[in-house]
Design a protein around this nucleic acid. Structure first.
Length: 412
RNA sequence: GCGGGUGUAGCUCAGUUGGUUAGAGCGCGGGUUUGUGGUACCUGAGGUCGCCGGUUCGAAGCCGGUCACUCGCCCCA
């Protein structure tokens, strides 16, 4: 170690930042709980195949963005790049298939070996919810509504747009995929390199391409909405209707395709333009195929994950370490007498601090810098009368009180 | 993984075409006599100029590499 530092894309959270993260986390867990989602905690690393199987061998996360390693018993393990796979695995392991539906929330660090940017770290935190065992479209509306309420509670819903799309069921998707490949085949010479590779592996992703040439080609490509079978189509319409009932504004984006293979039907993304190019702040969709891919029974699911770091960048709350009262003693000896006073204040629920050193003037200066509203001063005079001096640092007024009287003043 | 920008004190930044002991503001510590803060004044600490190498009599400034951050691409939360 030539220099003391964190590894690339991995950051410390100092008090003011952590405070914002905790606001995001607590808000998310709290609103989830109100929607009857119970918090779970799952491992930070798993057998690699927990992630490689569902995410698809061709996905970027599996091919180049993962942290894989072998432990001492030669098991191939992976730091989790996302939460859904682990959550569904945990759900299957716990045998909850017998007791449906199940609604979970979780949060914690995820790991992806990507090029760091603002709002994109190698260790980052997500908060997610999963609703398992319901295929009814109402559950799609439910999770979107939960996501929206979350952002609304954070006071940022006005800076965020909801985009929504459907991939249809697996039959519709298959038909559409064939039509899309058929259309794109004729443009092979013009497509960007990345898109050309995806033409045979994951053609739907081409719809998401930012290449100007690709965009032009895509403009006239077949529309997925035209390839939906009846059930898929009415399902999507019902979801939109539900959002209308909730007064949640959305934009249908037929090119919105989730990067991970296990999605079907609904996909959605809450996007902001305040964070530069990393604008996705909460995203998810339906993943009916996932539990089967993992080797369990076929259980439908829908959920989302939110980027805690990104949301924390968006909320205004400045961290103020608000102290209730500062304790000032005249001498080293009076500091001893302040100890039981501080203990009493602590028991009563007040935050206080004894300033140990310096002249009285110095101690007041410090109290002032800490923006303490009140000070308790203990010196010879007070000790003789068995009282304390209680000072309002805003007005400057002082009075001699006993401790209980002072505590009553603090309560106001 | 690809392309652009940046890197001087805890923070925000100066530093002239390379030229002695690298500066300011804010913040931090101490002080302006006896038990009282917010203002003012005095004073102090803190930098191997991201790191390594090269050019030069001499590099914070030039060149190369490297690391980190940042912007865009890719991808995604």
């Amino acid at each position: 170690m030539e220099k003391l530092r964190t590894v690339r894309g991995v950051h410390d959270l100092m008090p003011d930042q952590l405070h914002k993260h905790n606001i995001v986390i607590n808000t998310g867990l709290d609103i989830s709980e109100k929607y009857n989602y119970s918090q779970i905690e799952i491992p930070i690393f798993e057998f690699a195949e927990v992630f490689t199987k569902p995410l698809g061998k061709s996905s970027d996360i599996v091919t180049k963005e993962n942290y894989v390693f072998k432990d001492r018993s030669e098991d191939e393990l992976m730091l989790r790049p996302e939460g859904t796979s682990g959550a569904v695995r945990a759900f299957l392991n716990a045998g909850l298939v017998q007791d449906l539906p199940q609604r979970f929330s979780y949060y914690g660090p995820m790991f992806r070996y990507e090029r760091p940017q603002k709002g994109r770290l190698r260790q980052f935190k997500q908060l997610g919810v999963e609703c398992l065992g319901l295929s009814n479209f109402m559950s799609d509306i439910e999770v979107i509504s939960l996501g929206y309420d979350f952002l609304e509670k954070l006071n940022i819903s006005d800076k965020i747009e909801l985009k929504i799309n459907t991939l249809g069921d697996f039959d519709s998707r298959k038909d559409y995929r064939a039509a899309l490949v058929n259309y794109l085949k004729d443009y092979q010479s013009k497509l960007s390199g990345d898109s050309l590779k995806r033409l045979w592996t994951n053609p739907l992703r081409i719809l998401d391409s930012k290449s100007e040439v690709d965009k032009k080609i895509i403009r006239d490509a077949p529309n997925i909405l035209d390839y939906l079978n009846f059930q898929s189509k009415t399902r999507f319409e019902s979801i939109c209707k539900g959002l209308d009932y909730l007064n949640i504004k959305y934009k249908i984006d037929k090119n919105l395709v989730r990067g991970l293979d296990y999605y079907c039907h609904t996909t959605f993304e809450f996007i902001t333009n305040e964070l530069g190019s990393q604008g996705t702040v909460l995203a998810g969709g339906r993943y009916d195929g996932l539990s089967k891919i993992l080797g369990g029974t076929d259980i439908p699911g829908v959920g989302w994950a939110a980027g805690i770091d990104r949301l924390a960048l968006m909320i205004e709350n400045k961290f103020v370490n608000k102290i209730d009262v500062i304790l000032i003693g005249q001498t080293e000896n009076t500091n001893f007498l302040l100890l039981p006073i501080m203990k009493k204040l602590t028991q009563k629920g007040f935050k206080s601090e004894i300033i140990y050193t310096g002249s009285i003037a110095k101690k007041f200066k410090k109290a002032n810098k800490m923006k303490a509203p009140y000070a308790i001063i203990l010196g010879e005079e007070e000790i003789n009368q068995n009282l304390i001096k209680f000072k309002d640092l805003k007005t400057g007024s002082e009075e001699l009180l006993n401790l209980n009287q002072a505590i009553n003043k603090l309560k106001k």
